[in-house]
Amino acid sequence: MKILVSVKRVIDYNVKVRVKADHSAVDLTNVKMSMNPFCEIAVEEAIRLKEKGIATEVVAVSIGSKACQETLRTALALGADRAIQVEAEDGLDSLSVAKLIAKVAQDEAADLVIMGKQAIDSDNNQTGQMVAALLDYPQATFASEVLIENGEAQVTREIDGGLQTLAITLPAVVTTDLRLNEPRFASLPNIMKAKKKPLDVKTPADLGVEVGSNVSLVSVTPPPQRAGGIKVGSVTELVDKLKNEAKVVS
């Protein structure tokens, strides 16, 4: 079984986000970039399936400028067998990314596509579902457990009310939630080895995919700041404030 896992290079989750003064975008100059945390979980799941002998090959794919090769090298260091970069401008919209990933999945004849449920920059939570729709594959989003058996994936999903389990026929798309696994760290020898693993570069034209979007960004502004509150000295004072000042407790 072959697994395609997608990875996105995003602002590191520990970095404080700043909006540019002209409100055109978020300022990414000299900011630490990392693999999207949900993509790390996707890579980990793919590697575990390979370690269990269920998957035979793990291919990592990333859509973006040359810088995302670094993210692909991380995926290779973690255990992916080879990587594909689809060269495109950073910040391509989800539908274009989905079309590119869908085409790669088709060309690779991947049995399972594992993706993060959302990227922590655009917070869209949609690309995996779009890939599945474009390929007419079944999907299991927000996965917290994945079991592969008899050409089927039995996936437990984190939903608003609790957990739901679906059985989907492969080929299929799974998107990862936080509790699926705890990603490992790449060891130094593996980071060295990853430099020798194959990394192909393709363009959207190579894949026959036209990219573009009808959505334009008008402005990006900082969120309204909450005015700092006060410290209260005791529970009695707190209850008094809630009753008589904020009037949220009767």
Binding site: S94, L95, N125, Q126, Q129, V131, A133, F142, D160
Partner: peptide, 22 residues
């Protein structure tokens, strides 16, 4: 919601349009 987030991107992709989330 998790239901809306699960289904609507498929609708957008099938219609060949973007989805604006949240």
């Amino acid at each position: 919601t998790t239901t809306g987030k699960n289904t609507l991107p498929r609708v957008a992709a099938l219609l060949n349009v973007a989805q604006l989330s949240d």
